[in-house]
């Protein structure tokens, strides 16, 4: 008797918990949907100049302008593409150099003075990640003038956040035994770093850096919009001269470049790790 009663009570409890979860889930779904409908109304229905868009045929027509490819432009895209890759590479390398102090300060187990240096490193990482590369590009164009240097600096600063975050997390997770072993035989702090810490985190770091390089190709392909050269500048020029097939060619070139970057990063990571 008692056993069945207990079982019944437990079953009731389970059913009650399930109904409660169901109600919460439906409420969340309804809230998501309601906010979506409201956002749809304010952003898309109210804020769009429907007269400017016209009929569906007009939209299709303007999309159709992009569907041609201007092959004549393709031969002129080698140099900007090379420039884009170079800016990405230099930016990533400079980012690695810049992020060394951020990694050092940002890993809780090796940070010199945790109450001050750890928040400082976190601030550096957040600042680098939260500001968009376009904004960094504008800032550095104002500081060092038009040209590739501004793009390199913008990418370097923008890369710091990701590289430093992943690397310092890798350092926090490392095995402390080699560190103790090197200390026990009397190795200096520098030797501890070279022989105990670096070999453990190097594969992760190289993977992260190559991944960041791949992302930086994508970023450097648009830095031309703010005056840092490369494929972005070609894109901007083609658009401003209303040569829509040329715009399509440039976008295709960017796609090919990024595919190339992804392939290189895939094989290099496979070779190293």
């Amino acid at each position: 008797m008692i056993a069945t009663e207990a079982a019944a009570r437990q079953a009731e409890r389970i059913i009650a918990a399930r109904t409660k979860a169901k109600i919460t889930h439906s409420l969340i779904y309804i809230a998501v949907l309601a906010v979506a409908i409201w956002c749809f109304k304010t952003t898309i229905i109210d804020d769009t100049d429907w007269a400017r868009i016209g009929s569906v045929a007009n939209v299709l027509e303007s999309i159709g302008e992009f569907l041609e490819v201007d092959w004549g432009l393709a031969a002129n895209l080698w140099e900007p593409a090379l420039e884009t890759i170079m800016v990405a590479t230099l930016g990533t390398l400079l980012g690695v150099v810049v992020c060394v102090p951020a990694i050092w300060f940002g890993a809780l187990n090796i940070t010199p003075y945790a109450p001050v240096t750890y928040p400082l490193a976190r601030l550096m990482m957040t600042l680098s990640r939260s500001i968009h590369e376009i904004v960094w590009g504008l800032f550095f164009v104002a500081a060092v003038g038009l040209g590739a240097l501004a793009g390199v600096l913008a990418l370097a600063v923008r890369s710091v956040g990701f590289i430093a975050k992943m690397s310092s997390e890798a350092i926090e997770d490392l095995d402390p035994k080699p560190v103790e072993a090197i200390r026990a035989v009397g190795g200096s702090e520098f030797k501890v770093f070279i022989y105990a810490i670096l070999p453990q985190v190097l594969p992760t770091m190289i993977g992260v850096i190559i991944f960041e390089w791949e992302i930086n190709i994508r970023r450097s392909s648009i830095l031309g919009l703010v005056g840092a050269g490369g494929l972005g500048l070609v894109f901007f020029r083609q658009l401003n001269t209303f040569n829509y097939p040329g715009v399509t060619t440039t976008i295709l070139a960017i796609l090919v470049l990024i595919l190339f970057g992804e392939l290189v990063s895939f094989y290099v990571r496979k070779a190293i790790i």
Partner: peptide
């Protein structure tokens, strides 16, 4: 792969300024 700003420029060219 195509950066979000390029998408924005393309859609602005096709659909005009605005949040859409």
């Amino acid at each position: 792969a195509v950066h979000e700003t390029i998408w924005a420029i393309l859609f602005v060219t096709i659909l005009g300024f605005g949040m859409m």
